[in-house]
Simulated assay, not measured.
Amino acid sequence: MDVETTATRATAAQLLRERAYTQIRRMVMLGEFPTGQRLAEEPIAEQLAVSRTPVREAFVRLHADRLLKRFNDGGYYVAEIDLFDMRDLYELRLTLELRGLTRALEEGISHDRDALVELREAWLAIQADPPEPDGSFIELDESFHLALLRSSGNLALAETLESVNGRIRAVRTYDFLTEDRITSSIAEHLGIVEALLDDDIALSVDRLRDHIGASLEVVEQRAAEAIRQRSLRSRRNRGA
């Protein structure tokens, strides 16, 4: 087997693993698995027309994403969503990010303009070629908010936000399941950066509040629907 054939097969296998991960993640977020039920590799693999290996690897990744939990014997099930904890963490997230914006109101403190220009250019490119609405946008979204906060000059705020992001990543992924949410989020990001580049801190604060508030509303609605769907499936299984 030549090097080119080996590389082609490796690329195909990686694409297959990524597709399985993306599809199973979406199924989890849409509430397609009953609450507390062990996820069986074989039927999921058959449904996705793949072997059990990419399914098993997807479970490991989703466990790291906090979307799945693990039984003591090694099996996986869908993690419960705590909406009250989520609201508290969103409030903490907003507090951190607003502080990053308003630091520039203090004498002698300003945002890193070069970093903001670079951030704007990066997101204009994303706007021109937006990603698919499969939940993976969360990584780009987190990178935006971290870069925005770092531009304030307080890296401790950014480190704290990164920790908060890790705790709410699983539920925040619910925000990016439709094309309209991807499009609006990109536009809102650019609007926040433009306000900062225009030295309009008040406008950037208003836009950030609206942006995070809209995200929380969407996440709450979709997470609550996923909880309802899982509960319905659990009841159906018990009645079967």
Rank of each mutant, 00 (worst) to 15 (best):
Y90N: 10
R236H: 14
R56W: 12
Q37C: 09
I126V: 15
M1K: 13
L101R: 00
A125I: 11
Q127V: 07
G74L: 07
M1Q: 11
R17A: 12
A158N: 02
I126W: 03
T183F: 13
A122L: 14
E179P: 02
A224I: 05
I182Q: 01
R93L: 09
V164H: 02
L39W: 09
L48V: 07
Q47D: 14
L62G: 02
S184M: 13
R222H: 03
L39G: 07
L101M: 05
T95S: 14
E162H: 04
S110A: 08
E106R: 15
E18R: 11
R172P: 01
H63W: 12
I168D: 04
E220C: 07
A223P: 01
D73K: 14
R167T: 07
P131K: 07
L157F: 08
A64I: 12
G108L: 06
F176L: 09
H111A: 00
A64T: 11
T160W: 07
R222P: 00
A226Q: 02
A240M: 10
P34D: 10
R172A: 03
E188M: 10
A202D: 12
I109R: 11
I138W: 02
A79L: 09
V171R: 03
L232S: 12
G191P: 02
N72S: 15
E106N: 11
H189W: 09
I109V: 15
A58I: 00
H111D: 05
L197D: 03
A49M: 13
G108C: 06
E18H: 15
L161T: 06
S151C: 08
I138T: 09
D141T: 04
I138L: 14
D200E: 10
P133Q: 05
R236N: 10
